[in-house]
Nucleic acid binder design. Sequence first.
DNA 1: CTAAATAATGAATTAATATTCATTTGAGTT
DNA 2: AACTCAAATGAATATTAATTCATTATTTAG
Lengths: 194, 194
Amino acid sequence: MQKNKSEKYHKILNSAGAVFAEFGFHKATISQIAAKAGVADGTLYLYFKNKDDILYQFINFKTQDVFKKMHAAVDTDRNAETKLRNLIRCHLLAFQNDKNMAIIFQSEVRYLRDIESQIKDISKMYLDLLSDIIEQGQVEGAMRQDLFVGLVKRFILGAVEGVISTWVSAEGRYDLVAMADPLVDLYLTGVRGE
Amino acid sequence: MQKNKSEKYHKILNSAGAVFAEFGFHKATISQIAAKAGVADGTLYLYFKNKDDILYQFINFKTQDVFKKMHAAVDTDRNAETKLRNLIRCHLLAFQNDKNMAIIFQSEVRYLRDIESQIKDISKMYLDLLSDIIEQGQVEGAMRQDLFVGLVKRFILGAVEGVISTWVSAEGRYDLVAMADPLVDLYLTGVRGE
DNA sequence: CTAAATAATGAATTAATATTCATTTGAGTT
DNA sequence: AACTCAAATGAATATTAATTCATTATTTAG
């Protein structure tokens, strides 16, 4: 198995992403991925330990990439509400720009947790980001003091994921990022009338 | 394949639920399920078309059961906010009482969508229930007029699912139903300070 | 230009298990 | 007790696709 992340490595990873997204990890075959990448079946095993490893590397790679962006997005402002808004916008944008990733994250994450428990829980870093924002918001007085942070962060992440999930089911036919502001608005002020 | 839903049919369905929940659908084997149900491998094929069909029937059965309960919960009151509260409470209770179902719904539903697109979208009825409640809330003046119902219902369902998902990850070690009121409170008034 | 060394190939092998079906069991009937 | 038929069995089979590895191609170094 080669060590350097050559062009071919990324070619295979991308092809795998497309095939996994279309057929699901279990129905996807090595031959399909190899064909799409324009290499022989055996070649995949020069770059990856096995089929599971391809999924693992895919998610690992994408996760790191997305989190770099999210951190950057949060760091652009000092205000908690703005941070939250930027985080959600960034999140939706990243998934909108990479539908394969969106599909795979949505459907294979639990299987992945089984095969590689060492992997950083994908939600974990996200939830930590949110905790910081909420706690800061409370200090600033912009968010209620009586919030149970453990629930609030789950509430926020769950709702974003739900919105992404719907968008995926709709084959990505509308603008996902446009949901960011209405969504944050719901987080902040809820549905209750004045 | 037998037609009547005999005791053995349910025995197998339950065993399958336990095995699917523990190992995941793909790693679970027919032999495991048969052993747990106390029957021979071949017997499963008298009651189910194939392995996929077992999962399909499991989800179908549980879905119907849960929806009966949810409808009943919503119908206990005329007030929109109360309806919402009862729905969420009922949802959390049903999943708390049946952890196998919770695990399977969380991880295998997308696979199912592939094998049996005829199945009613599991979220569909739920989302319709929510739409009705929200629209009623708007009429009553209890909920804001400017809500985008399509987003709000996704927002609500996503957040509940996120909360359930966390509970499952925590091996169900705390009281899930206790999350209902704080959660509904978040839906209604959001996180923003006064 | 030749010889290592490295990379890639893809047919053959392996492994895992879902599914089948010839046979057995057991309950009900005459 | 002998017969019938449905239900159940589980060893044998079929299938599917992941993985291997002997062979071939390509690149690099002297």
